[in-house]
Nucleic acid binder design. Sequence first.
DNA 1: GTGAACTATTCGACATTGTCGAAAGTGGTT
DNA 2: AACCACTTTCGACAATGTCGAATAGTTCAC
Lengths: 255, 255
Amino acid sequence: MIQAIDRAAKILAALQGSRHLGISDLGAVLDLPPSTVHGIVKSLQAHGLVVKEPHGQRYMLGPTLLQLSNVYLDTLDVRARAMRWTGDLAERTGLAVRMGVEFFSEVIVIHHEPRPDGTRQMPETGLTIPAHASALGKVLLAYHPAFKDSVVAKGPLRSLTAETITDVDELDKALSEVLATGWALEDEEAVLGESSIAVPVADRDGEAVAAIAVVMPASDSPIPETVLTLLREAARNVSRELGAPGWPPSVARTD
Amino acid sequence: MIQAIDRAAKILAALQGSRHLGISDLGAVLDLPPSTVHGIVKSLQAHGLVVKEPHGQRYMLGPTLLQLSNVYLDTLDVRARAMRWTGDLAERTGLAVRMGVEFFSEVIVIHHEPRPDGTRQMPETGLTIPAHASALGKVLLAYHPAFKDSVVAKGPLRSLTAETITDVDELDKALSEVLATGWALEDEEAVLGESSIAVPVADRDGEAVAAIAVVMPASDSPIPETVLTLLREAARNVSRELGAPGWPPSVARTD
DNA sequence: GTGAACTATTCGACATTGTCGAAAGTGGTT
DNA sequence: AACCACTTTCGACAATGTCGAATAGTTCAC
C-alpha cells in the first residue's frame, strides 16, 4: 500500500464526510502536519479531484469525480442491461426501483428509477445504505456469505429505526428465509414509513452480482403478489441477458 | 506535485478513457514499469477507487467514485438552488434542460433535466462537452475571459460537425455577441439535429459560475421568444437565490 | 484602520518511502 | 501438456515525500 495514495484517498473520504474542510482540519483528521496535507491536497487539486471553495480557504470534492463516476456507471454491465427492465418495472408497479451492489460492508445504489408519478424525487444513485437494514442488502448478504462475514466483522449492526435488525442471530434467520423464498423484505427498518422488497440478479457464473428492489410506503396490507411477480420477472430477465445459467442465483461458496 | 498521487490520478484518467485496462496497458500509457503501476493500482483498489473486473485481470474504475461524486453534487450550491427552477423550466418548455460549469478546458454537466415527454433518455449529468461547440460553453467563455484563454491555449478547436466553430476569430465574434445579448445559441455545432440556447447564472460576486441551457431539435424556425424568456427567468431566479447583485453577470476581470 | 491570531503556503534537509529490475506465480492458448 | 504473456511478489537503492520552521496571507476584534 503506497502511503501517499492511501493518505490521498483518506482525504477524499474525509471530505466526503464533512463536505468542507481546511488544511488544518484535514491535518487533525489524519493526524498529519499541515504542510504534508497541503502537498497532497494540492496534487489532488491539480487533477480536479478536489477544489478550493470559492470564498474562504477550505477545500471540497472536485468535478473530476463526477466525470469518473459517470464512466464507472457506464462500465457496469449489470446496470446497462437492467435499465430497460427497471424502467418497465417502475411503470408497471407505480413504485420506485433501486438496483444495488456490494460496497465494502454496505450497499451502493447503482441505479434508481423514481416513482413514475411525476413528483419531484431526489436521485438516489450513489447513495450507500447499510446492508442489514435494506432489502437490497439482505439479498446480497444471503447469497454471498463472505459479504455477510465482512459486515458482521465490521462491528455491531447499527440501529436506524425501532425495526432495524441489530442481532446477528436474527439476521441469520432472516437471511435463510431469503434463500428459501428468493426474495427479501424490509419493513421500516431503515426509514420510517418506507419498506422495500428485493430480489437477486445472477451473472454468468450463477452468482448474485446485484439486487433489484421496489420501494413502497409501509403498510399493514400484505405484499401484492403482482408486484413480487413483476420484480422477479425483471430480475430474471436481467440475469438471462447477463448469461446466467439459472435463477435464483446459487450461494457463492466462501473461500 | 506529489509524484505518486499524480500517477494515481493519471491512471484513473486512463481508465476513464479506455474503461478496461491491464497493468501492462497502464504501464504503456504512463511509460512506467508494470511493478510500479501495480503498486499504485493496488492502493487505489484498497479504497474502491479501482476494481478488478470479474473475469480476466484487467482493472476498471470503482464504486467509491460514485459515492464521492454524489457528495460532490450535494456540495454545489448552484445545483441545489437551481434544481427547483430547472424542473419548472423543463415542464413549461417541454424541452430538456442542462446546467454546466467550467471543467478544465471543457464544460461538465452538473444537472440534467430530461425532456418531460416520458421517453427514455440517457442521464447526462457528468458528461463533459467541448466549450466551443456548446451553448453552455459559449456563455461561460464569454463571461470568463481566462477560461477562453485556457481553451484557446489548449490547442485547435476540434470540429465535431460541419457547423462547429473551429476558428478563434469566429469564436471571438460569437462571444461578443453573447455578451451583447446575454444568451448563446448553438445550432448543430456539436450533434447533428440538436441545438441549444444557454444563459449565464451569476453568484454573489456577480460573476458567471454556471450556465443553464435548453436543448431542442434543430429547426429552421426562429427561437421561440417564450422559451428564451422562460430560460432567462430561470437563470435570474437562481442567480437571485445565490445572492447575485444583478443579472446578467459581469465579465470577470482577467488576473 | 490597525493589530493580533490564526491559517494556508513555501522552502530545504533528512530519511522514510516509493520505485524499479528480477524472479515467481498465475492464467490462458496453441 | 508445455508454452507464452501477463500479473504479482520481493528486496535494495536512492529518489521522493515528509516534516519543522519561516513566510505570506486571511480573518476577526478592537
